[in-house]
Design a protein around this nucleic acid. Structure first.
Length: 434
RNA sequence: UCCGGUGUAGCUCAGUUGGUUAGAGCGCUUGACUGUUAAUCAGGAUGUCGUAGGUUCGAGUCCUACCACCGGAGCCA
């Protein structure tokens, strides 16, 4: 009996119980005894296929006994319930080898991270990576849906830029014809602000690049960032928008990716808390006081160290907004607090469970004189920013926005030890291939 | 960039005080096995001990330099 079309996707098997179907995919694992068991994956899901001598034709039974990991196969059989787990499984009648796979490097046993990273393209086939990338997909979709439904217009920011948005030490450079050098964008934010008077509410969502020589569990040189910007808005609006967005994302993931979270052995209780409870809020000044009582040696005016974030977040079970930092260590375009001019009207959202900063944002200065002074103070070239200053010259109004690092959000929601698993092809200081 | 660690079979690792022919598990392979699920059981094949020098009668083991990777710090999303 030949295997024949039409083919069914594994994700639809539940609705085919008791029927005959054909599947095609790859052998995740094959266990041979008198009865042969094939764990099949087709990208949409996983299913165990049972090949018994009584039900399968002799040729198929023979083939099933010799399958190697990651061979591509097609098969036809009856969808039944697994006698122990109750999940759908296939009682195979016919099976054929589509393409063999010899000595697949990633075996079911443990591997080191270097080996897995070198074999990233093959690693993507593993169950855990499958789950992570699907959660990432859901988060990306949730972000786009959230802003679309909220009336934001997509305003794509350029990746090749003539100058830096923030610091200059961490830019990737490339030749750009008569212009000399171009730089890979570190942030789309400055290009979002001109979109404010044009569209009211805008966002961009794409890759950004930082040539930082950081080797930590939360840094990539190429990462994705979503950056909304809105008119007639201040710091409070940023806090509310960010919190609504994060909750929207959490809800989508908890609704639609339970199977993946289970594969990742993710305890969803902390995510449920973040979804239901109001996020914490603390001013920078308050947080420094609290850190001192918790044993940190931080002083007012210093930025948080990694330990400080950890200390602060160990004391809470939900995301925390820290707002009104000293403006001295924030970007030049941040608005200052009229009530206390040495503070910036900015805020960072710290994720619980040790994941640290996932959002940074705030109100942008509308004061052109102040910005000119800041540009000079930061040693930036004013001519590069004339178009940016035009946002203030022609109907400049209060506006605010934030940036969220996608990979950090994925790492938190999946509770991964390192952001390198949150993106299909991670780019880090020492990793450019594959 | 700084500090710490690791590098031995395709993979994950063990290797005593420097000592003769370098080991295990997985994977692969041959066979066995009444539903297995990191299946199990029995047999088999598999090594430039990161690279280059040095010490020594003798180096996987000690020393020096370099390389790669891992972890942390700083910086950041």
């Amino acid at each position: 009996m030949p295997v024949s079309a039409p083919f069914t996707e594994v994700r639809h098997l539940q609705s085919h119980l008791g029927q005959q179907v054909s599947l095609r995919g790859w052998v995740r694992n094959a266990r041979t005894s008198k009865t042969r068991f094939i764990e099949l994956r087709d990208g949409s899901g996983f299913v165990q296929c049972v090949v018994g001598a009584a039900e399968a034709d002799p040729e198929s039974y023979e083939t099933a006994g010799k399958l190697t990991q990651e061979s591509a196969i097609a098969l036809t059989g009856m969808v039944q319930q697994h006698p122990k787990t109750g999940e759908p499984e296939i009682l195979v009648k016919a099976l054929q080898l589509l393409a063999p796979s010899v000595d697949f490097p990633i075996t079911p046993k443990d591997h080191g991270i270097e080996f897995l990273m070198d074999n990233r393209t093959l690693w993507l086939r593993s169950k855990r990576q499958w789950a992570i990338i699907r959660v990432r997909h859901t988060i990306v979709k949730a972000i786009r849906d959230f802003f679309d439904e909220d009336g934001f217009t997509l305003l794509d920011a350029p990746i090749l830029t003539p100058s830096s948005c923030e610091g200059t030490s961490s830019l990737f450079e490339t030749d750009y014809f008569h212009e000399g050098m171009a730089f890979l964008s570190q942030s789309g934010q400055l290009y979002q602000e001109p979109g404010v008077p044009a569209f009211g509410k805008v966002y961009c969502f794409g890759p950004t690049f930082r040539a930082e020589k950081s080797k930590t569990r939360r840094h990539l040189t190429e990462f994705w960032m979503v950056e909304p910007e809105m008119a007639f808005a201040g710091l409070e609006d940023v806090l509310q928008l960010g919190e609504r967005m994060v909750k929207f994302i959490l809800q989508r993931v908890l609704e639609g990716r339970q199977e993946e979270l289970k594969i990742l052995e993710r305890d969803t209780a902390p995510l449920e808390i973040a979804l239901k409870e109001t996020f914490g809020r603390m001013s920078y000044t308050e947080s420094v006081e609290k850190l001192k009582t918790l044993g940190s040696d931080i002083n007012w005016g210093e930025d948080f160290g990694n330990d400080d974030e950890t200390i602060l977040m160990n004391a809470t079970d939900r995301p925390l907004w820290v707002h009104r930092f000293p403006k001295s260590f924030k970007a030049f375009y941040m608005a200052y607090d009229p009530a206390q001019p040495d503070l910036a009207l900015g805020a960072d959202l710290l994720a619980p469970e040790g994941y640290g900063e996932v959002i940074g944002g705030g109100e942008r200065s509308s004061d052109i004189e102040y910005l000119l002074a800041q540009i000079e103070h930061h040693g930036l070239n004013r001519a590069d920013y004339e178009w940016y200053l035009d946002v203030r010259r022609y109907g400049g109004v209060q506006h605010a926005g934030f940036g969220m690092g996608l990979e950090r959000a994925v790492a938190w929601i999946c509770k991964l030890p390192h952001v390198r698993e949150t993106i299909p092809y991670p780019r880090m200081m020492g990793t450019l291939r594959p």
